[in-house]
Simulated assay, not measured.
Amino acid sequence: MNDQNTTHFGFRQVPEGDKAKLVRSVFDSVAGKYDLMNDLMSMGVHRIWKRIAIQLSNVRHGDKVLDLAGGTGDMTKLYRERVGDSGQVVLSDINAAMLNQGRSRLLDEGVVGGVRFVQIDAEKIPFPDNTFDCVCIAFGLRNVTHKEAALASMYRVLKPGGRLIVLEFSHPPEGPFKKVYDAYSFKLLPALGKMIANDAESYRYLAESIRMHPDQEKLKAMMETVGFERCEYFNLTHGVVAIHRGYKF
Rank of each mutant, 00 (worst) to 15 (best):
D3L: 15
D3W: 15
N5W: 15
H8N: 10
F9H: 06
Q13L: 15
Q13H: 12
P15E: 08
R24Q: 12
V26W: 06
D28F: 11
S29D: 10
V30L: 01
G32M: 12
Y34P: 01
Y34V: 04
D35C: 02
D39P: 00
D39E: 11
M41H: 05
K50S: 01
R51I: 09
A53Q: 05
I54D: 02
I54F: 08
N58K: 09
G71N: 07
G73D: 01
D74K: 00
M75F: 01
T76E: 04
T76W: 06
L78A: 12
L78H: 07
L78G: 12
Y79Q: 10
R80P: 08
Q88V: 12
L91I: 05
N95L: 01
L106Q: 06
V112W: 07
G113N: 11
G113D: 14
V115W: 00
K124E: 13
D129F: 06
N130I: 04
F132N: 00
C134G: 00
I137P: 05
H146E: 15
L151P: 06
Y155E: 10
V157Q: 07
L158G: 08
L158M: 10
G161C: 03
R163N: 13
S170T: 12
F177H: 08
F177N: 08
K187T: 12
L189E: 03
M195S: 14
A197H: 13
S202D: 11
S202H: 05
Y205S: 02
I210Q: 07
R211S: 07
Q216R: 09
K218I: 02
L219M: 09
E224N: 00
V226M: 01
F228A: 02
E229S: 02
C231F: 06
N235E: 11
T237S: 15
T237W: 13
H238Y: 04
I243M: 01
R245L: 04
Y247L: 09
K248E: 02
F249K: 14
